[in-house]
Every structure is written in structure tokens, then in C-alpha cells.
């Protein structure tokens, strides 16, 4: 109810100029064709952007890295994807700011799994505390997977240097390395993790949300766009948050026992998601990949500060990057876990 109110208010505030302009405002967003980008697909298909007087153009990329570069370089006005070391280095130079949340690891919602290879599992690699001494495949240095391992190390009290990291560049390579027993374990998104387990090539030994809940993805905008076209960004966020609420309604429901349930609302949204995601997922795959996205677009703000500090401690992000300056918390109300100044 409150979301609706906020959206309506935002619409009121911004409707005037849109009308006088007489035409729809063009705005572009860089994104991945992943299920985790669902809110923008929903906002598009349900006409939430149009309601706001926005003519939104999707610019699709196949990795998180170029999305950050595209926004920093001004090739796209906004971006939505996972937060990586590369993102913080660009944002730290003042090129862009985080304005709302995307996926996060939330207890009860499977998203990224710790997966042990068959051989390593049989040899006793059966819980996430056993990472020290193992060879672990990740996509890239400074990727979200890298950070998730870093957090796990902190939580379980081992040093990340006790783990041999093998950057393999792509999820496909990571999966192949696990199947080939060339690594002892990997971190994989739920969908891939289930597939690997089904093949018998690996065993899921835990979920990141059970160990270290965190803010994995975000919606961000170019600093220049925020400064010069603030109303457009506000309208975009309004539509985005409205879609986040729809998404949460459909995909994030749980029954009394805490088990996730997918009803008719999910069935209604699945075709929208299938339209954009590549390769085209089955309904089951959409459900398996449906990560937790805050219904109100709120960020785990403290965690973003922690991420920056961690990357800095690893030497992957420049020392002079200030997390507070990367964040613009004014577009979404009531952000979570905001550190006291």
C-alpha cells in the first residue's frame, strides 16, 4: 500500500514536466539478460516506465564489467548488475552512484551455492568451513564470487590466502573445471548449481545466504545523469520500485514452514521474464534463479561500506575510494542498515 502511495506521489511530482515536455523522456539502462534483472523487464512490460513518461531503452551486455564501463563512459544512463571490484574502481572516480538495490543474499532464498566436486566431496569437503587448502574456481578476480569467498573466510575464521583461487573467466569454464575435477570446489548461481548436482559432477555443500547475507546487486546511475536529469532518475526509480514490489509478491513468498511458494502471480510474470532472459529459461529455471530483491528497492547500506573496505584491504580497489560518495540514498526511502555517521 505504502509503495503505491510513494509511486503515486512520485508520479504527481514528476508528471507536470513530463506533460509540458509533450513527449516521453528517453532514458537507457545497461543490463544483463538474467532473471535477476526481472524488475526492469516487469516495469517495461507492465507499462510502469510509460506511466512515468519514460521511453526506456535496454542495452544488453553479457558481463557485469562492461555494464559498469558503459554507465561510467556515458553510453548508458543507468545500469543494473552485481557489484564488483571493477565497479567500485569506476564509481570511486566519481563516474556513477548506487541508487537502489537489486539482488541480495537473504536467508531463506537460495541464490549462490558453494559446490564441491564429486571427488572432493567424497574426500570430506562437505561443509563451507572446509575451504582452507582447497583449489576453488571463480569467474574473475574482484568478482562477486571472489568477495563471497572473502566474506566466508572472515566468518569462518580462515585466511583467503589459504585457498588457491583459479580465475576461469566464465561460469561455463567454472562448471567445466568442476566437472573435470580440476578444482575442488566452486561458487555457482542456483540454477547452475542444481544442474551440476543433477549431473552428479558436484555436490551443493551450502548456500551463501546461510553464511553471509549481503547486497549483491544494485541499480546505479551516471553521476552526470543524476546531476542534470534528476527528475528522470526519480521517475525511473519509482517505476523500478513498483516492479520490485510486483516481483516480491510473485516470487518471494514463503509458506508457514518457510518454504518458498510460487502461485498464480509468479505464473503471470514468468512469460515477461522469459521474453528477455537468454538463453530462454523454463518456468522452473526462472523460479530457481529468482533471487531475493528488496520489495522497496532498499539497500543494505552498511554492507556496501564493508564491500569497499574489503576490496581495499585486498588491494583491488584504490584506497581513496569513499563508499559514502558512491551512494546516493535520496531516491529510495528507508534504506536498511544505514551506518551512523
Amino acid at each position: 500500500m505504502r509503495i503505491r502511495l510513494v509511486a503515486a506521489l512520485a508520479a504527481l511530482v514528476t508528471f507536470g514536466p513530463a506533460l509540458t515536455a509533450g513527449a516521453q523522456e528517453k532514458v537507457s539502462i545497461a543490463a544483463l539478460r538474467f532473471v535477476s534483472s526481472a524488475p526492469i523487464f516487469i516495469a517495461m512490460e507492465k507499462g510502469y516506465f510509460k506511466e512515468q513518461g519514460l521511453d526506456v531503452e535496454f542495452k544488453f551486455f553479457d558481463a557485469a564489467q562492461p555494464i559498469a564501463v558503459a554507465v561510467a563512459a556515458g553510453n548508458a544512463d543507468l545500469g543494473i548488475t552485481g557489484l564488483t571490484g571493477g565497479f567500485y574502481n569506476l564509481a570511486g572516480k566519481g563516474a556513477m552512484k548506487i541508487i537502489a538495490s537489486q539482488s541480495r543474499e537473504e536467508p531463506g532464498y537460495d541464490f549462490v551455492a558453494y559446490v564441491a566436486s564429486k571427488k572432493a566431496y567424497d574426500a570430506g569437503f562437505k561443509d563451507p568451513g572446509k575451504f582452507p587448502g582447497k583449489t576453488i574456481g571463480i569467474t574473475q578476480v574482484g568478482s562477486t564470487f571472489h568477495y563471497m569467498l572473502g566474506m566466508l573466510a572472515e566468518k569462518r575464521g580462515f585466511k583467503l590466502t589459504e585457498v588457491t583461487l583459479k580465475p576461469l573467466q566464465s561460469i561455463a569454464n567454472v562448471t567445466a573445471a568442476l566437472k573435470g575435477e580440476q578444482v575442488d570446489g566452486v561458487l555457482l548461481p542456483a540454477n547452475n548449481a542444481y544442474a551440476v548436482e543433477k549431473d552428479g559432477a558436484g555436490k551443493i555443500i551450502g548456500w551463501v545466504h546461510q553464511e553471509t547475507p549481503w547486497q549483491l546487486g544494485a541499480l546505479f546511475a551516471g553521476t552526470g545523469v543524476i546531476e542534470e536529469r534528476r527528475p528522470v532518475v526519480e521517475k525511473f526509480v519509482a517505476a523500478y520500485v513498483k516492479a520490485c514490489a510486483d516481483y516480491a509478491d510473485a516470487f518471494l513468498q514463503r509458506d508457514a514452514a518457510g518454504k518458498r511458494t510460487f502461485g498464480s502471480k509468479a505464473d503471470a510474470l514468468i512469460p515477461i521474464i522469459q521474453k528477455y532472459v537468454e538463453p530462454k529459461p523454463s518456468a522452473e529455471q526462472v523460479k530457481a534463479s529468482a533471487s531475493y530483491i528488496d520489495p522497496k528497492g532498499r539497500l543494505l547500506v552498511k554492507n556496501i561500506h564493508e564491500q569497499v573496505a574489503w576490496y581495499q584491504a585486498q588491494g583491488m580497489v584504490a584506497r581513496d575510494v569513499d563508499a559514502a560518495k558512491i551512494l546516493d540514498l535520496s531516491f529510495v526511502k528507508d534504506h536498511l542498515d544505514v551506518p551512523k555517521r
Binding site: 559498469a68 574502481n89 574473475q140
Partner: peptide, 21 residues
């Protein structure tokens, strides 16, 4: 060094690229 290298000039260049450094 693009695949599975922790150290090496190539691995370093690649990770610097990934990190936008």
C-alpha cells in the same frame, strides 16, 4: 594466463582489466 592463473603478467593484466584498474 587468462584461465586459472593466480600470478603472471597476463593474469595481472587481465585482473587489472576486470577491476578497471
Amino acid at each position: 594466463e587468462m584461465i586459472g592463473a593466480q600470478y603472471g603478467i597476463g593474469a595481472f593484466i587481465l585482473s587489472a582489466g576486470n577491476l578497471n584498474q
